[in-house]
Amino acid sequence: MEFQYNETWLHKINPTLKLFFMVGMFLFVLFVHQLNLLLYLTFGAFILFWFFSGHPKKRVALLMIPFILVFVSTATSMIFFGKGETTWFKFGLIHITEESFYRGIHLGFRALIFATLGLTFTLTTRPVKLFYSLMQQAKLKPKYAYSFMAGMRLIPIMIEEFFTIRNAMRVRGVQQQRGLRSLFFKLKSYSIPLLSQSIRRAHRIAVAMEAKRFSDASKRTFYYPIGYSKTDGLFILSFVALILLSYYSAEWLPLFPVGDVRYES
């Protein structure tokens, strides 16, 4: 979980604001049905992701591999099985039409922009800062915020445990079992130790936190005071600019010869 990276202006944005803005973008994109507009929006989001995440290009590129799979897998069902009039290809159950093709591509880009924005957020936000900010700006109750932070801390420990259990299962010969019943058996062999260990650990941490006088009732101070800054304004402006630019580009330079991708019968 420990990666080296440079702080960019995206790291300096108030995490709560960033989160709500990203969610806003998500909802906005749900109502974009013009393929060309979506294309430009995705392109803009991608620029943000590629140039300003602060992580080395090699890592960013590596993180993009799943994007392609998501794109393909999201697009194909719709391309193969979606409704449409202008048939391009038909074979058995598969029926590709012009409409279903563009709709499929649209869905692919939609998945891509969600992924890009989401990953940009993750790469530029330290969870601890996010929860500190949510406590201060969104009035999230400390007992939820600190539970999340405590939980996040356990992730590397859990992953380590997962590998230990895998080795232990190999020693016991669990992988020799075959068949459908063994699938549930394997699922159980992994999840029981992992869950029981995690529950006990969570319980102990909660007790330890209360032993350190954690309580929701008392007023707390914050080690990381988080507020708003000028960068936040820049962030909002850049998104407004992105949306406007995308509208104009889609209007003047449409890359696909389609408008609304929804099916109208």
């Binding site: 007992k143 939820y144 539970s147 999340f148 405590a150 939980g151 996040m152 356990l154 992730i155 859990m158 999840s191 992992l194 869950l195 995690s198 529950i199 650990r201 969570a202 319980h203 941490i205 909660a206 936190m209």
Partner: peptide
Amino acid sequence: ILVTIVIAIV
């Protein structure tokens, strides 16, 4: 809350 969240993280 903590137990729920940790189960959820698993």
